[in-house]
C-alpha cells in the first residue's frame, strides 16, 4: 500500500515536472520568436501558455509587449494591467503601461495630482498581495510574541511600555488587514476594463437613440458600473459616465 502511494506521488510529481518543462520550452520558443521580430508567432505561443491556466506577471508583461509591437495598444494595456494585478511591484510592466497610456488617443495618467492620494496610491501599488500577506503574518507574529511576553514576563510588573508597543503593533496590523481586504477586492474585481475597438461612442442611455455623451478611443481604462443587455454603463477616470457597447472592451480579469 505504502509502495503504491509512493509510486503515485512520484508519478504525479514527474508529470507535473514534465508539464512545467513543456511550458518552459514553449516560453523559450516564444522568446526566440520575439527576438526574431516574429511577434505574431511569439504572441501565439505566449497565449498558449496563458491558456494552460498559468497566471504569471512576466507572461502577461511579455504578451503585452507582443500586442504593443503588433500595434494593438488596447490589448497591450490590458495585459500590462493584468501583470500589475498579479504583481503590483512589477516595475517593467508599470513603465510599459505608462508608456502605452501616453500614446493612446485619450490622455490618461496613472497617478492623480493630489499629493496625499498620489503617495497613498504609490505605496499601495508598490506592494503586491503576496508581500502584503507575508508582512501581515510577520506583524501578527510580533504581536503574538509581545502578548506572550506580557503574559509570561510582564504580568506582575507595572510597566506600560510593552502594552504601548503591543497596541502600536495591533494598530499597524489593523491597517494592514484593511489594505489586505482592499487589495484582495482589487485582485478579484471585474470592474476595470480597457477599450479595445478603435473608438466607442458613449450615450446617455443603453441605445444609439440616446444623446451622445462622449467619444473614447482604444486603450482608455474605465470602470464598469452597470450592465443592460449588450450595453454597459461605464465611468471614465475623469468622472464622465455613459453607456457603450459591450463588444468594444474587455474586462481586466484572469482567464
Amino acid at each position: 500500500m505504502y509502495k503504491l502511494m509512493l509510486t503515485f506521488v512520484l508519478l504525479l510529481t514527474i508529470s507535473s515536472v514534465i508539464g512545467e518543462n513543456q511550458i518552459d520550452d514553449i516560453f523559450n520558443q516564444a522568446i526566440s520568436s520575439y527576438e526574431n521580430r516574429d511577434f505574431e508567432s511569439a504572441l501565439e505561443k505566449f497565449v498558449l501558455i496563458e491558456n494552460q491556466g498559468v497566471i504569471n506577471a512576466d507572461l502577461y508583461y511579455n504578451i503585452g509587449n507582443c500586442y504593443f509591437r503588433l500595434n494593438s495598444i488596447g490589448r497591450s494595456i490590458l495585459y500590462y494591467k493584468l501583470a500589475l494585478k498579479v504583481k503590483a511591484d512589477h516595475l517593467a510592466a508599470r513603465r510599459n503601461l505608462e508608456h502605452a497610456l501616453s500614446i493612446t488617443k485619450d490622455a490618461q495618467k496613472l497617478e492623480t495630482e493630489n499629493v496625499f492620494r498620489s503617495f497613498w496610491l504609490k505605496a499601495f501599488n508598490s506592494i503586491s498581495l503576496n508581500l502584503l500577506a507575508i508582512l501581515t503574518l510577520v506583524i501578527f507574529f510580533v504581536i503574538v510574541v509581545l502578548i506572550s511576553m506580557m503574559i509570561g514576563i510582564y504580568r506582575n510588573r507595572e510597566n506600560a511600555i510593552p502594552i504601548f508597543v503591543t497596541i502600536l503593533f495591533i494598530f499597524v496590523f489593523v491597517i494592514l488587514l484593511i489594505v489586505n481586504v482592499v487589495k484582495w477586492q482589487e485582485y478579484h474585481s471585474k470592474d476595470e476594463a480597457v477599450l479595445l475597438s478603435p473608438s466607442a461612442l458613449g450615450y446617455s442611455g443603453p441605445g444609439e437613440d440616446f444623446t451622445r455623451v462622449f467619444t473614447i478611443h482604444e486603450g482608455i481604462i474605465f470602470n464598469i458600473e452597470k450592465e443592460d443587455g449588450s450595453w454597459c454603463l461605464i465611468k471614465l477616470k475623469n468622472g464622465l459616465g455613459g453607456w457603450i457597447k459591450k463588444d468594444t472592451f474587455e474586462v481586466v480579469k484572469f482567464r
Binding site: I55, N56, I103, L129, N130, Y187
Partner: peptide, 24 residues
C-alpha cells in the same frame, strides 16, 4: 511605436514561468 527598444521595456527572458499563486 516603431522606435525599437526606446519605447517599451525588453521582453523578459530566461525565466521559469510558473503560476504565481496567492499565499492567501
Amino acid at each position: 511605436v516603431n522606435e525599437e527598444g526606446a519605447d517599451i521595456g525588453f521582453v523578459i527572458t530566461n525565466k521559469q514561468i510558473r503560476s504565481q499563486k496567492l499565499y492567501f
